[in-house]
């Protein structure tokens, strides 16, 4: 059978567009040909003809062969993607990269630490654990955002908060009048969270500084470094480790990552030169 060319985008149609926050939106996309299977933590290259390509993680799927990407408006391509309407077409290459260690997390407590739009790549992990709930121990989500207006997937978060099989700790860096939830940076809440550090798997996604402090807090709780995973972000272009744009020390984030175990990158994360 002829292998598909990973450099050629496949056509996908926007079936639904949802506004998540003032600058974040989700697209439900359906293929014209074959359905795509992916692992939580992997990403696609979304191509808008005449504008360019951007790497975007999967944030979910529907049961009908559709995939969901949650996108923040951070530049010209994502600005244009935000203007898409239902029925419009885009090109997609993927899926690429190494995802979250959902298999390794089985029979352990699963600790997810998300910051800002970092919740989107972790959402498929939550779905995976919930769909196979008896294969995992505790499920804990620590989610930090800038303000209450920046909270992603608000309806789904309410559903999770109402469940007994997931602990959700939601905190904002800056509160507003009327906010009655937590305030403060999310790594601070790791200390008081109830999980077994000797039998847990932590997955962290968010700004690099937030990930650094979260790792420190998890290590202080007694977790082993090899049980902590982080998702790195750099300027990805080819997505297959050829162009070198996303080189990170000895790694290419697009091919070797974006998910790394902490020991793999602990010597280079946070270095100015990298």
């Amino acid at each position: 059978m002829k292998q598909p060319n990973v450099m050629i985008p496949e056509a996908y149609t926007v079936r639904k567009k949802s506004k998540e926050t003032h600058d974040i939106f989700s697209l439900l996309l359906h293929p014209e040909k074959d359905c795509m299977t992916f692992k939580p933590g992997q990403f696609n290259m979304l191509y808008l003809p005449g504008q360019g390509e951007v790497p975007i993680s999967f944030s979910g799927k529907n049961g009908d062969g559709g995939i969901i990407h949650t996108i923040r408006k951070v530049g010209s391509v994502t600005d244009k993607l935000s203007l898409l309407r239902e029925g419009d077409e885009i090109g997609i290459r993927g899926p690429f990269g190494r995802g979250w260690p959902v298999e390794r997390a089985r029979d352990r407590d699963v600790v997810l630490v998300a910051g800002g739009i970092g919740l989107a790549p972790l959402r498929p992990v939550i779905h995976e654990v919930m769909e196979n709930r008896n294969k995992y121990n505790k499920l804990i989500l620590l989610y930090g955002t800038r303000t209450p207006d920046d909270i992603l997937f608000e309806k789904e978060l309410h559903d999770w908060l109402a469940r007994f099989d997931i602990d959700v700790i939601l905190s904002v860096d800056r509160s507003v009048p009327g906010w009655h939830g937590h305030a403060g940076v999310i790594p601070n809440f790791i200390q008081g969270t109830d999980f077994d550090p000797k039998n847990a798997c932590a997955m962290i996604c968010g700004p690099e500084i937030m990930m650094n402090f979260s790792v420190k807090a998890l290590l202080a709780r007694g977790m082993k470094a090899e049980d902590i995973y982080i998702s790195m972000e750099r300027n990805m272009k080819c997505a297959v480790g050829h162009c070198g744009h996303c080189q990170f020390g000895a790694f290419f984030i697009c091919k070797d990552g974006p998910v790394f175990s902490y020991p793999e990158v602990s010597g280079i994360i946070g270095l100015k030169e990298i």
């Binding site: 923040r72 408006k73 800002g116 955002t145 800038r146 860096d173 403060g184 940076v185 968010g206 937030m210």
Partner: peptide, 12 residues
């Protein structure tokens, strides 16, 4: 923690 809050780490 206060410095992190002041940094506004979630800003684009």
């Amino acid at each position: 923690s206060t410095r992190l809050q002041l940094m506004d780490i979630y800003a684009t």
